Simulated assay, not measured.
Amino acid sequence: MKKTFIAIEGPIGVGKSSLTHKLSQTYHFYEENEIIDENPFLSNFYDDISTWSFQTEMFFLCNRYKQFQDIEHINSGVVSDYHIYKNKIFASNTLSQDEFDKFSRIYNILTEDLEMPNVIIFLDADLNVLKSRIAKRNRSFEHHIEDDYLLNLKRDYQRFYESMKSSETQVIRIDTTNLDFVNNDADYQQILNLVEPLIGGYKHE
């Protein structure tokens, strides 16, 4: 029987890392977090997306590929704050068509034999809520994120969710606009009630 491998996805600022940590603590799953701050191109990327997008996306892809490789050797359940497919979502919004075609070929080669998540939790929130959460965490390189960029990500994640509903992967979408699952136990319990049927009978104590 394959281990439970949960990926939490959604646009920037939606709460992926926070929910990943809480679920890992609740279920005693291995917690996988994507590498953000170590990307040397990220600050330049938000200042000039067209110039720095390919370098930025390739750095993320290579790191996420290595992390997903390492996950294959973990026997316990895993909860990750990203799905490697997010590389294609972000790349489609930042790369030229020629660059995206090249990037997609590399992505397909790297991910061909990777173990993929069998449960995906899609988080979403209204634009103003996303902007508020991004401002609250105060990452300097995120100060210049434009509304259109966030709206495009929301749209593309919705498309990803719709495409995954027809697959064998367990998927759920949760609107967190009016939820504070970090500070409100009732809101977190509401999420647990939605997640537990997806993960094969795991119960929290």
Rank of each mutant, 00 (worst) to 15 (best):
K2T: 10
K3H: 08
T4I: 14
F5L: 02
I6S: 03
A7W: 05
G10K: 01
G10F: 05
G13P: 12
S17L: 00
S18W: 02
S18M: 12
S18G: 07
L19K: 05
L19C: 04
H21W: 03
K22L: 14
K22G: 04
S24E: 06
S24V: 06
Y27S: 09
F29S: 03
N33F: 10
E34L: 02
E34Q: 10
I35A: 04
I36E: 11
N39H: 13
N39Y: 12
L42F: 10
S43H: 14
Y46G: 01
D47N: 14
D47Y: 06
D48V: 00
S53A: 15
S53C: 07
S53Y: 02
F54E: 14
T56F: 03
F59R: 11
F60L: 00
L61A: 04
C62H: 12
F68A: 12
Q69N: 14
Q69L: 15
I74K: 13
G77R: 07
G77N: 07
S80E: 09
D81Y: 13
Y82H: 13
H83Q: 02
I84F: 01
Y85C: 00
Y85V: 07
K86W: 03
K86E: 07
K86D: 00
N87T: 07
K88H: 03
I89R: 07
F90R: 04
A91S: 15
A91G: 15
L95T: 09
D101E: 15
D101S: 15
K102G: 06
L110G: 08
E112A: 11
D113S: 10
L114A: 09
E115C: 07
M116K: 14
P117M: 08
V119W: 02
V119C: 09
I120V: 13
I120K: 10
I121S: 05
F122D: 04
F122R: 04
D124M: 06
D126K: 15
L127E: 12
N128R: 07
V129F: 01
S132W: 03
I134K: 06
K136C: 01
K136H: 09
R137A: 04
N138G: 12
R139I: 07
R139C: 06
F141D: 13
E142C: 05
E142Q: 12
H143G: 03
H143V: 06
H144S: 11
H144V: 01
D148C: 08
Y149P: 01
L150A: 11
L150Q: 09
L150W: 08
L151K: 15
N152T: 11
L153M: 14
L153I: 12
K154E: 07
Y157R: 01
Q158L: 14
R159H: 12
Y161R: 02
S163T: 13
S167T: 15
E168F: 08
Q170F: 04
V171E: 02
I172V: 13
T176S: 15
T177P: 04
N178S: 12
N178Y: 11
D180V: 04
D180P: 08
Y188I: 02
Q189K: 14
I191R: 09
L194T: 00
P197G: 03
G200M: 01
G201I: 02
G201T: 00
Y202T: 01
H204K: 13
